[in-house]
Write a protein that binds this DNA or RNA. Structure first.
Lengths: 149, 149
DNA sequence: ATAATTGCAAAGTCTTTGCAGTTTG
DNA sequence: CAAACTGCAAAGACTTTGCAATTAT
């Protein structure tokens, strides 16, 4: 499994290893994509990954990024999240959390996935609805931007 | 189908009137689109609106649906919501609520928008983050589907 | 060797836009 | 009549896919 509190380098390594273990192959493209995801603290768009990777491998095509992303999702290593503002980001699955997304400065702060546990319990007790845990993005103004109008 | 027909009729009328009041024009296309939104209990995709409307007005183009939707959003009558499963729906703004979306049977249940007030207060007090109210969709299994596995 | 993977080009969604003709006020 | 609105076609953003060439094992 992907390592917990180790260096990013090791984490990339662990994920590549997991791909290999499951019959996939170790390639530069995959390494590059995984590196960006790991480095990015857990929330990047496909496009951001592509541009980032192209700095080192200009020949890399977006389709390869999407295919790598698909592979990582199939392996349950990466999760695709659709935010309430319509944007789409990818992040490591062992790094689940909600987000505070500032609409003004674009900053993204992470929040424990447990934040909504109370609400989820209520939905179960009250409606019998079993929520499937999904990282959510709350949009609004961060502390800084809320102060200076 | 004809149960609430009349009150819906009036609601459509009111919205058309509001468009006119603000300088817009009363057209059949708009009336048809608005009718579908009003009838649909508050959550329809652009595509669903288009197919619905085309039953009566086969010549209606999707672009007109999108433009009408844009107009209604500009007038703050309709809201566009991006759900966490990647789907996009439109609903009347005066009818704000969260949703319980069953991944199995596709049912959508409405919840008071106040559901997350506690969480929002916490985010404000704890992080100084001012959440902009947005209807969210919680995905999972509804009571019925949760029982029969 | 041989099966997985990639780059490229093309296609598929969903949504928006330019334009010329039509309709509303 | 003038401005607003519509249909149609085309384009744009984002994502997926077919295929021949490349690469990892």
């Amino acid at each position: 499994m992907a390592g917990q509190g180790h260096s990013h380098e090791q984490q990339v390594e662990a994920i590549l290893q997991e791909i290999v273990d499951r019959g996939g192959r170790r390639t530069m493209s995959r390494q590059a994509v995984i590196r960006v995801i790991v480095d990015s603290h857990g929330h990047v768009s496909a496009d951001a990954i592509a541009s980032q990777v192209k700095k080192d491998f200009p020949s890399m095509d977006v389709s390869t990024v999407y295919r790598t992303l698909e592979t990582l999702r199939d392996l349950d290593i990466v999760d695709r999240v659709y935010f309430a503002d319509g944007s789409t980001v990818y992040h490591l699955k062992d790094h689940q959390h909600h987000h505070l997304c500032c609409e003004k400065c674009g900053s993204i702060e992470e929040l424990p996935i447990t934040l909504l546990e109370g609400v989820e319990d209520l939905l179960l007790k009250e409606f019998g609805f079993r929520v499937k845990q999904r990282p959510l993005g709350f949009f609004g103004l961060c502390a800084k931007c809320a102060q200076m109008p």
